[in-house]
Nucleic acid binder design. Structure first.
Lengths: 224, 224
DNA sequence: GAACTATCTTTACAAGAGAAAGATTAAGCG
DNA sequence: CGCTTAATCTTTCTCTTGTAAAGATAGTTC
């Protein structure tokens, strides 16, 4: 589980080899980390995976990265800023998870696979998902990069929906997104298990539900 | 916005009228609050509405209720316990919001109205909604009352779905719930505004999306 | 090599969660 | 009525956390 980034991977082989005769030979790790920003983000991912979104603290992250608790402030303005960076990565990861579907020729099948990828990605990184769509979202103006990353992810979904049905594309996209988002949230909140839905297969659920939502509304209904 | 419960409403008219000659006549509020538990919950609602879910602290709630910061511990085991009680109320409120739809004869129309009520209720109390479906949900075994309240709310939805289509009831219920839940979350996270969906009417959106999800899958597709 | 700047640490502080112990009141019981 | 007991509320204390400030260290540039 521990990311390799947690131990400095910078090309900086053996500083103790430097015979500058530093007074204290006990110095094992260098003063400067070399790649702390990335290390902190990786550490945050680890902490999130271990203790969940609620149990994450700046000091935890710093500890996991092996630096003092104030060091992160030279790379992130605040805890929220760090979380925004985590969320940004999460949105990028989501985009990556959906990306392979562009190879699917059938537009409807592509939408279904996007929905599946969305739910799969959310369930794979529950705490991250919570950070991505937590309180930070309402303050996304303060974090332009995160905002851009989330916009990119949605753009992929919207493009797929418009390819499927140019006219109703936006509505289909929003429907699919809402459904996948809601299902993912309900599942990782544990709301679903324990309910009288035991006969529904958890594996195929995302696709089956998405099939309903994506179905193009009959034109007869539209011009009522 | 201030709830009337914030000032003790207990039948305890004017304790200063008691001519017991207490040494200090400055005593305006009695030592015992009389109805602190309810007052705290109301205060928590106020704080949530004011500062949001992230800005809520036990001490804030206690301050708003006019008691010391340790007083709440005599009514709630912990902050999470208080939040669970808030969530319980939220689920009950949700049930109340959906309840009037039982009068609707048309089963599909009833489902649509339930979806509308769900989204409306969520948007009316954003912070509360976040508490209801936050980290607490994953620990719902620790809070039986909250669990029961959420189960009651879902039972209403499930019943309506089964009335509409006995066979596919559960799946329709889950679809509608996921969709409404996802849409509500995306809306109150502010994810939607700012996206290229401006042409979609926010008011009618819940109903229109729900129409898609609730549509019964054609039998031709089912027996493929 | 010296000044500069980025990076990291130490120290300090305010705020919050929660525990512990004492004060105050209500209720029950003789 | 007076005493006892339990419930409720307050004070005080400890531990953790986010964040600011100042100092230490090390690359970088002239």
């Amino acid at each position: 589980m521990k990311s390799p980034l947690l131990t400095s991977t910078q090309p900086k082989a053996q500083p103790p080899a430097k015979a500058k005769s530093t007074r204290k030979p006990k110095v094992v790790k260098p003063y400067h980390h070399g790649n702390l920003r990335e290390t902190l983000l990786a550490a945050a991912d680890d902490v999130l995976a271990t203790k969940g979104a609620a149990g994450l603290t700046l000091r935890d992250v710093a500890r996991a990265a092996g630096v003092s608790h104030a060091a992160p402030y030279h790379h992130f303005a605040s805890l929220d800023d760090l979380l925004a960076a985590v969320a940004t990565r999460g949105f990028d990861r989501l985009s990556e998870a959906m990306a392979p579907t562009v190879a699917v020729a059938d537009t409807k099948e592509r939408l279904l696979q996007i929905s599946e990828a969305y739910v799969r990605c959310a369930l794979a990184n529950p705490a991250q998902f919570r950070v991505m769509f937590g309180t930070l979202c309402a303050r996304k103006n303060e974090f332009p990069e995160m905002r851009a990353a989330s916009a990119r992810a949605f753009a992929m979904l919207l493009a797929a929906a418009c390819a499927h049905d140019a006219k109703q594309g936006p509505e289909i996209a929003l429907t699919g997104w809402s459904l996948s988002h809601g299902l993912a949230n309900l599942m990782l909140d544990g709301v679903i298990d324990g309910l009288p839905l035991a006969d529904l297969d958890t594996e195929t659920m995302p696709r089956r539900l998405a099939e309903r939502a994506i179905a193009v509304t009959p034109k007869a209904r539209l011009r009522k």
